Computed example of a mutant assay.
Amino acid sequence: MTVHLVGAGPGDPSLLTVAAAELIRQARVLVYDRPSMDAIAALAPADAETHVVGLRRGHRALSQPEVNDLLVELGRRGDVVRLKSGDPFVASRGGEEAVALQNAGIAVNVIPGVSAALAAPAAAGIPLMLRQNSVTATFVDGNDDDEHAEPPDWHALARLGGTLVILTGRGRIRRIAAKLIEGGRAPDTPIAAISAASRASQQVLRGTLSTLPAPLPPPVTFVVGEAAALELTCTSPKAS
């Protein structure tokens, strides 16, 4: 009995790893977060038992402890494929699920995936590290309202410079931008907002820390720094 924590990548099914695609196609029990992953979940057998644990019309999202309990319950019955957006261990709480499963004596198999931290900037034509403007890239979870976690030190991140990639910070980006400016980042520092990276519905808007891009539908990845002003691709991910 094993729970496979499978990195589902940024959203385009063609960006799944071979290992991830094979596990999904063989799944008997599949757990995933949101209807936006339906195209990937559709690779599973038609008779697979599926559980959507994220917010969807007419149903509330399960809390993380509830998801942990569900995975333990299902894992005690047999193998489970648990889809995680991007990479299971990058801003997707796969680590918390792995701890809960191991504490329950259930084997865990982690299949790495393409994190939105890397895929979203690439899909938008933004090189995170370019010698002419940035030789460092820092990744941070913008969802800093968890009472059990220490919030990011935005002032320290501002002083660090380079390229900053903010995940899951859509609802807090105005406060985050203000803290980065307070910490020393110039108000005219470029920022890019990337929505639904790699999907047909991908949108990219650019602005600055003082003039933020208009809100975009989730999931959104933000890139802050000189690189965010660049656009080094001229075709959409679906055009090839």
Results as ranks from 00 to 15, higher is better:
Asn143Pro: 02
Asp141Thr: 14
Leu70Cys: 06
Val165Thr: 12
Val80His: 15
Val99Asp: 15
Ala120Phe: 02
Gly142Gln: 09
Asp146Cys: 08
Thr136Arg: 15
Thr138His: 10
Leu164Pro: 14
Asn103Cys: 07
Ser85Phe: 01
Asn109Val: 05
His148Cys: 01
Ala120Cys: 08
Gly78Ala: 07
Gly162Ser: 04
Val80Cys: 09
Val81Gly: 12
Pro127Thr: 03
Val80Gln: 13
Leu70Val: 10
Arg159Lys: 14
Asp146Leu: 10
Gly86His: 08
Ile126Met: 06
Ala124Arg: 06
Gly113Trp: 01
Arg82Pro: 12
Val135Leu: 15
Gly161Glu: 09
Pro112His: 00
Arg93Cys: 07
Val110Tyr: 00
Phe89Ala: 02
Pro65Ala: 02
Thr136Pro: 09
Ala104Met: 10
Gly94Gln: 06
Gly78Trp: 11
Val81Ile: 07
Arg93Gly: 04
Gly86Pro: 07
Pro127Arg: 09
Met129Pro: 10
Gly161Asn: 09
Arg82Cys: 06
Gln132Arg: 15
Val140Arg: 07
Ala120Met: 11
Val165Gly: 06
Asp79Gly: 04
Ala124Gly: 10
Ala107Cys: 02
Asp144Gly: 08
Ala100Glu: 15
Val80Leu: 13
Ala119Met: 05
Gly161Phe: 05
Glu147Pro: 09
Asp141Val: 07
Ile126Trp: 00
Ala91Ile: 04
Val80Ala: 13
Leu164Asp: 07
Ala107Lys: 10
Lys84Gln: 11
Leu160Glu: 12
Gly113Lys: 01
Pro88Asn: 00
Val81Ser: 02
Ala158Glu: 13
Leu130Phe: 11
Ala149Phe: 05
Val108Ile: 07
Leu83Glu: 03
Ala91Lys: 13
Asp79Ile: 01
Ala120Lys: 11
Arg76Asn: 06
Ala149Arg: 15
Ala119Thr: 08
Leu164Ser: 11
Gly95Pro: 12
Ala123Val: 00
Ala122Ser: 15
Gly162Asn: 04
Val99Arg: 15
Asn103Ile: 02
Ser92Ala: 12
Pro121Tyr: 10
Glu150Ile: 08
Ala137Ile: 13
Asn103Gly: 06
Met129Trp: 03
Ala156Lys: 13
Val90Asn: 14
Ala124Ser: 04
Leu160Ala: 15
Val67Arg: 08
Arg93Ile: 11
Val81Phe: 00
Ala98Pro: 11
Asp145Tyr: 10
Ala122Thr: 14
Gly78Asp: 08
Ala104Glu: 05
Ala91Cys: 14
Val165Glu: 02
Pro127Ile: 05
Leu130His: 13
Val110Lys: 00
Glu73Thr: 10
Ala98Leu: 15
Leu128Glu: 01
Glu73Pro: 07
Pro127His: 04
Gln102Asn: 14
Ala107Glu: 09
Ala107Ile: 04
Phe89Trp: 08
Val140Gln: 06
His148Pro: 00
Val67Asn: 03
Asn143Tyr: 13
Ala124Phe: 04
Ala116Gln: 08
Leu101Thr: 13
Gly161Lys: 11
Gly142Pro: 14
Asp79Ser: 12
Lys84Ala: 06
His148Glu: 09
Val110Phe: 01
Ala137Trp: 10
Leu118Cys: 07
Ile126Val: 11
